[in-house]
Design a protein around this nucleic acid. Structure first.
Lengths: 334, 334
DNA sequence: AAGCAGCATTTTATCGATAATATGACGGCG
DNA sequence: CGCCGTCATATTATCGATAAAATGCTGCTT
């Protein structure tokens, strides 16, 4: 491994001069600079980032810590990456498997040292556990959990989104709408907030809120969602609409409805949440709630940048607005 | 930041003893160990991984460098992560935007230093560019490009997979099959190898190979695929089957066919490649070529592990076998 | 010609850990 | 009673860079 000292010897200068040339910290005379650059070229030198980090305390790297790499988080990450890169930093993804232990481990002092800042998509940790995290590292939390006030946090307008989706289906004739993947578990805020939006839309329309229509799902996969909805169909519970708590869940619902010979949107209307890329393409087009991923990414990266630049004011808690995107899976759609 | 020296002072021992306790390198007397552990607890000490890396040369971290975070790569990454974690290491993802410059940057000496090993999904680099990468860092290449012999490499049986998919549709009645996303550009091996498989299936069945049925796509997104297939439909070129070069492309095709009122699989059969999770759920179920992601992940991680453990034998070039998974989008499917 | 400002470059100290080597205490043995 | 081996712990050197302070050289002022 060629070190800065090797370059210095080759160029006949001190190590510090090489450092000054490469980092443009102190001015270096033009002839000297040229000799140094020539030596760098000749030896193929590249700085040891680990040593720089140890000494200078900067990695120019930001981590986005996610429950899993696929679907929603992969799409968000692809939105975040260019924003981080535009500031001359690198983005890396780490995965927690949505387990609280993994999330805590990712937030351990040891792991945080690698990064100048961290975006954490909270899935497993509750408010108390997060409160135990003591670090001065810039952190922005993402996701639909309750978090301590001192953290910057970006979340979606969950209840409003669910209300919009449900109201849209009611407006176009649905009267008995399954809340697929929703729960009454207020600790799991995403599924319970969205259930509340579903409830509100029903109440606003003067419809009954029947808890049998809240159908939880063991794991948040399309397969589990399909099975759950097939069970509902088999049970004979009548329904003419499905609000899926996420688009991934909606994908499972689409499959279950197709298998059962139920036609979307004629027999059953269907709406999801997240407006993933695939939503436009899965026939007949998934009506979904769009939370403007780019906007969320920009907000989160903005808050993180502010912290990395030394801002120490109070944390912000942003609720990203949502809008309905109507497609073929509802009768108001294209 | 609490350092090892602080722990040492608190416990009344030398720094080296603390290190020995934490790393279990040299044996330490039980009473001393207990005092050290107590001090670690009391101060909430965690090792500085950067300093350890600089001195010990080990990060216990592996990078998976991908063109983009979503879809195919996200799914693969979720398969790889547990394998790496099972060996007590961390996996991080980095993204290259599929540009050769970014890929070269990711392979720069500087970035490689952060990792004990690297899995690189090659998208933009050609053989010559890869040949310029000079590093002793353990690397395993993934993907459908041509790579220098000295690198370990795992790729799929592209031609055979395309042949299987196409032959399957021919067997069930298709005669004019669009090769959507395929190309004649032999530099882009994935799309050209798969085109060759499509050609072979046609020839094997005694059918004409008409280049008008090879439909390239400007970007590998469902939107571009949908537009391209809509153009084909508008052109009046008759077809009764679509081989989509990937499932992501097939998703775009599904949308185009649905919009055009063409029924799958009655009017047009459709098959993709990759067998992504969504393939089972997109109605009527996407017939696809499965390359056993878990198996590919295990092979790649196995090759990487071998290198990280010091193996210096010749590199291996693995071609992962593929199989057809028939679903509702072809007439042989469920 | 002495003194000093201003700039280019070098020297010194340090980031926080670990590998290799050295020291010291204790017990066994002749 | 003194020598030596063994085990526990401490010292020293080092990984590769950078911040801060020191040095040395020019040329300009008075």
């Amino acid at each position: 491994m060629v070190r800065m000292a090797d370059v210095a010897r080759e160029a006949g200068v001190s190590v510090m001069t090489v450092s000054n040339v490469l980092n443009e910290r102190l001015p270096v005379g033009e002839p000297t600079r040229a000799r140094v650059m020539a030596a760098v070229e000749a030896l193929g030198y590249e700085v040891n980032l680990t040593a720089r980090h140890l000494r200078a305390g900067r990695t120019d790297t930001v981590a986005f810590i996610v429950p899993s790499f696929h679907d929603y988080f992969g799409e968000i990450a692809d939105k975040i990456a260019p924003l981080i890169e535009a500031e001359g930093r690198h983005l890396v993804l780490e995965r927690t498997s949505a387990s609280p232990e993994h999330e805590m481990a990712a937030l351990s002092v040891a792991r945080l040292q690698f990064y100048d800042g961290v975006l954490l998509s909270v899935a497993g940790l509750d408010r108390d556990q997060l409160d135990r995290v003591r670090t001065s590292k810039p952190i922005v939390l993402l996701g639909e959990r309750d978090v301590p006030d001192r953290f910057n946090h970006v979340r979606l307008a969950n209840e409003e989104g669910a209300r919009l989706a449900t109201a849209h289906m009611i407006e176009h004739g649905s009267r008995r709408i399954v809340a697929l993947g929703c729960t009454f578990d207020t600790a799991h805020m995403m599924t319970s907030d969205r259930r509340m939006g579903w409830e509100r839309a029903l109440r606003d329309a003067g419809l009954d809120v029947d808890p049998r229509y809240v159908v939880p799902i063991p794991t948040y996969t399309p397969a589990a969602a399909r099975d759950a909805l097939l069970d509902v169909i088999a049970s004979g519970l009548p329904f003419d609409g499905v609000f899926a708590v996420t688009d991934v869940i909606a994908l499972g619902a689409v499959a279950a409805l197709a298998e059962s010979g139920l036609h979307v949107p004629v027999d059953v209307q269907l709406a999801g949440f997240d407006n993933l890329d695939m939503a436009s393409f899965v026939p007949p087009g998934l009506t979904s709630i769009d939370a403007n991923h780019e906007g969320v990414a920009e907000t989160a990266v903005g808050l993180l940048r502010r912290q990395m630049e030394g801002w120490t004011g109070p944390a912000e808690h942003v609720v990203a607005p949502v809008r309905l995107v109507a497609r073929g899976s509802t009768r108001g759609g294209a």
